[in-house]
Design a protein around this nucleic acid. Structure first.
Length: 804
RNA sequence: GCCUGUAUGGCGAAAUUGGUAGACGCGAUAGACUCAAAAUCUAUUUUUCAGUGAUGAAAGUUUCGGUUCAAGUCCGAAUACAGGCACCA
């Protein structure tokens, strides 16, 4: 029996010693294949990692054989909370923990035979790498893209750190599950919202799947609308933003944000100050999630003593506070039209407010404004809207907008949901932010030539009770001189988020050891783009958007050759436990790839994970399925016992052989790995039926299997002396003239039901097809004595006889 | 609540994009080999009905409608599950 362990090691050593997968930045046909680099967690490699690494490995091996200069790199995303949490829990310095974990991960990856170019390996925690992360931060700062601001942030009382909105999803800390509270904190911010429009437009220059693009679009969240100035009775004004200006005559109240600036300005004139103040304080306790969650009731209070004027009809309208209006979105104030907005309707019901219908045609709500149907609706017309009565929604939208703009009290405005990126973390285990706070000069960037700003070793790396980074306690690190004026100053003690290092790592792989820049323009231009990027669906929104933003900024300051540096993005489904649930220690359904490799071999694991199901869908682990794939490889092995001396394809299977070459080549490049494997199983089944198998037959099936199961195929190829090593071979071609059999099974239907089948020559004419069909005994039973209405003939497929 | 997916045998899944539903694999059943077991090989395996049998018939791709000679595939509505989110005006 084949010794998977020994032969596997032999070939892995061969690839290592011969630097088979190391590439230079030169040569024809560069092709860059990337998988998301992992957090080297203490748990070791997950079988889920194996799925995507194998998939991309198969593509890499195939593309190499097709003559491409393939870059398939691997590195480590080792900064950030997960690594720090692991270190704190296990009482190991993060640096040491990361070193150990990387060693484990790398060993596991090597044991699976992935064709990574290890010469380009790096970790985001290497000073040689994070020097450039810091350098790029300085570029953001110097181009006015980084700024410090006091913002209400999500605060985890347990982790004692600030979380981005993304990390505080659901009102609980993503890491520890504690309830997140709102807290004012001074933070470094990146002006990502400036890039909203460019990030939308840039999608046109990518080949991302539609659902991936949609994820980006939804995150950016563009709303086209109108901003209108509203006068306050007795002086003053504010602005509202609306996407449904056509309903402006239906305003019966305004709602303003309890956490906005407007309410603070109005405070002196308010009659029910205490009530308003109480509501503001109540809102401050709530997270955005609480405020925005549905079915919570439409809480709010009237702002008494102050009324606003509807600009189109001069009506005096009440003002309310409502926590569903957010201070930091739009203008922090909305017009309420309960007749045509569900949320306004519920608020009006709750607070007994007037409802004025301004569009006929039933329960038409502005909420549906995104839908073309709403805009194209020709039945619904405006009413109760003075001179705009009778207009369609579309026309009313245009004309009312124009009317208000001409009056000088409105502007067309695009609002984006996407906010600026909170870039500070009160953490130890991250890239230090290279900024110095000088009592004279304020914030001063470090001199670029002093980078990297090395993360110092500390004894205690747990966060402090007051929420500062442990770096704050290292006074001889914190205290420094101002680069500008030379007086005593202090370093920033916040560090960068884990997203920072992963926002540009794919650029570094193109020129991994450059000491003069993060990557030379020459290298960036050579590889041009990441041709094919694979990762988890959970990263297609945040990580991908951050990375694209980072790249677009670098492009705008002339440091990368393309505004989009990633061409295709593919997302894989999760490998679930055998019970169909997410693998986790607590559920006891974790599968360790090491155990599998030991018992079944790396090739069996690789083959199984490709065969397990549709690559983009989740799949439950099955030990039996794995055994089936091991059995398949054993049968491949035993097929070698049947070899004859021929160097031609066996006649009996020549057509199938050509079909399989085409199928496997196409399927691998279309991420249909499961059907590629099944095609090989079908081919094997047929070859096993032959008494003997030619050397060409055998080498071909091994060749086709090689991208997925590289060890056993190389070994058998060598054992039977069939030809060059696959890793040094050219990929297979198929003969276009040998893809079709001479005959096919023609299906005969009567009224759409299959009533007969007959084997016919591939060139059978339509007339002959019909004639043959009508002659089948079983078919006759259904057409005799019936009127034939028509006959549908699909060449090379079927005949359908329609009878009455 | 909204957005995006998904739904096919006992199980994982295929289906040339409107043309034989269930390829391939697992599991199961029966048999061969074996003292026996494992491994391996062979056969059967969507369900129901008829037949000793080759086979034939009916139903069948979450549900209900529709278009079509023909629907897993297209259209309309509904349900369930998964992932994402922002009551975003």
């Amino acid at each position: 029996m084949y010794n998977h362990s020994k032969e596997k090691k032999k070939w892995q050593e061969y690839w290592d010693n011969n630097k088979t997968f190391e590439v230079l930045n030169k040569g024809d046909k560069p092709y860059y294949i990337l998988v998301e680099f992992p957090y080297p967690s203490g748990a070791g490699l997950h079988v889920g990692h194996v799925r995507s690494y194998t998939a991309q490995d198969a593509i890499s091996r195939l593309k190499r054989m097709q003559g491409y200069n393939v870059l398939y790199p691997m590195g480590w995303d080792a900064f950030g909370a997960p690594a720090e949490q692991y270190a704190i829990k296990n009482h190991i310095h993060p640096k040491d923990a990361v070193r150990e974990n990387i060693k484990t991960f790398k060993g596991q990856m090597k044991s699976l035979g992935f064709s990574f170019d290890w010469s380009r390996e790096f970790s985001t925690t290497d000073p040689e790498y994070y020097k450039w992360t810091q350098w790029q931060f300085l570029q953001f700062y110097k181009h006015n893209m980084a700024y410090k601001d006091t913002v209400p942030v999500n605060w985890c009382p347990n982790c004692k750190t600030v979380l981005s909105n993304e990390d505080a999803a659901g009102g609980v800390c993503e890491r520890c599950g504690s309830t997140v509270i709102q807290k004012e904190k001074s933070q470094w911010m990146l002006r990502m919202s400036d890039y909203a429009e460019d990030l939308l437009k840039g999608l046109d220059d990518t080949n991302f799947a539609d659902k991936v693009k949609l994820g980006q679009i939804n995150w950016i969240g563009k709303s086209e609308g109108v901003e209108v100035d509203i006068d306050i009775v007795g002086g003053g004004k504010f602005s509202i933003f609306t996407t449904c200006i056509e309903t402006i005559y239906g305003i019966t109240f305004f709602v303003i944000a309890p956490d906005g600036k407007l309410i603070k300005e109005l405070m002196p004139r308010i009659e029910n100050k205490e009530e308003v103040q109480a509501y503001i304080e109540e809102t401050a306790k709530k997270s955005n999630m609480d405020r925005t969650e549905l079915n919570k009731g439409k809480s709010g209070v009237e702002v008494k003593g102050i009324k606003a004027i509807n600009p189109v009809n001069g009506k005096e309208v009440k003002i309310f506070l409502g926590d569903f209006v957010l201070g930091d979105y739009g203008t922090g104030a909305v017009m309420a039209v309960p007749s045509h907005d569900e949320r306004d309707f519920e608020y009006a019901k709750e607070h007994n407010l007037e409802i004025i219908e301004v569009i006929t045609g039933g329960d038409i709500t502005c909420h549906a404004y995104e839908k073309q149907e709403y805009l194209d609706n020709k039945e619904s017309r405006l009413i109760n809207s003075d001179k705009f009565n009778g207009l369609t929604i579309k026309d009313a939208k245009e004309q009312i907008t124009k009317f208000l703009i001409d009056k000088g009290i409105a502007r067309k405005v695009n609002n984006y949901k996407m906010r600026d990126w909170i870039f500070s973390r009160q953490r130890f285990w991250g890239e230090p932010i290279p900024m110095i706070n000088c009592p004279q000069c304020g914030w001063v960037p470090m001199d670029e030539k002093d980078l990297p700003l090395i993360l110092p070793d500390v004894a205690e790396y747990e966060p402090t009770d007051n929420g500062e980074s442990p770096l704050a306690k290292i006074t001889d690190w914190v205290n420094c001189k101002c680069p500008k004026c030379g007086c005593d100053a202090k370093r920033e003690t916040d560090t960068m988020p884990n997203w920072a290092g992963s926002s540009w790592y794919f650029l570094r792989f193109m020129d991994a050891h450059n000491k003069d820049s993060f990557a030379s323009m020459e290298a960036l231009k050579y590889w041009n783009k990441v041709d094919w990027y694979n990762g988890g669906m959970e990263h297609t929104a945040r990580h991908l958007l951050y990375a694209r933003f980072w790249v677009q900024f670098l492009y705008n300051i002339g440091l990368v050759p393309n505004k989009e540096m990633i061409w295709t993005r593919v997302s894989h489904g999760m490998i679930l436990g055998s019970n169909g649930e997410k693998m986790s220690k607590s559920k006891g359904n974790v599968v360790n790839p090491d155990d599998i490799v030991k018992e079944y071999g790396a090739d069996a694991l690789r083959t199984y994970e490709m065969f397990i199901g549709d690559y983009e869908h989740d799949a439950a682990w099955s030990e039996n399925g794995l055994k089936g794939c091991r059995k398949f490889l054993d049968r491949i092995y035993r097929l070698g016992n049947k070899l004859n001396d021929s160097y031609e394809y066996s006649k009996e299977t020549e057509i199938l052989m050509n079909q399989t070459i085409k199928k496997v080549s196409d399927d691998l490049l279309n991420i249909k790995y499961n059907t590629a494997v099944s095609a090989l199983m079908i081919l094997l089944n047929e070859l096993e039926k032959l008494d003997t198998v030619s050397k060409k037959d055998y080498r071909t099936i091994l060749h086709l299997l090689n991208p997925i199961a590289p060890h056993i195929t190389e070994e058998l190829n060598e054992m039977y002396d069939l030809g060059d090593k696959f890793c040094e071979s050219t990929w297979l071609e198929y003969n276009n003239n040998k893809l079709e059999n001479n005959t096919y099974t023609m299906v005969v239907q009567v009224n759409g039901k299959v009533r007969g089948k007959i084997e016919v020559d591939i060139n059978t004419s339509k007339e002959k097809m019909e004639q043959l069909a009508k002659n089948i005994d079983n078919v006759k039973l259904y057409i005799d004595n019936k009127e034939i209405v028509k006959v549908i003939i699909v060449p090379k497929k079927l005949v359908n006889i329609v009878v009455k």
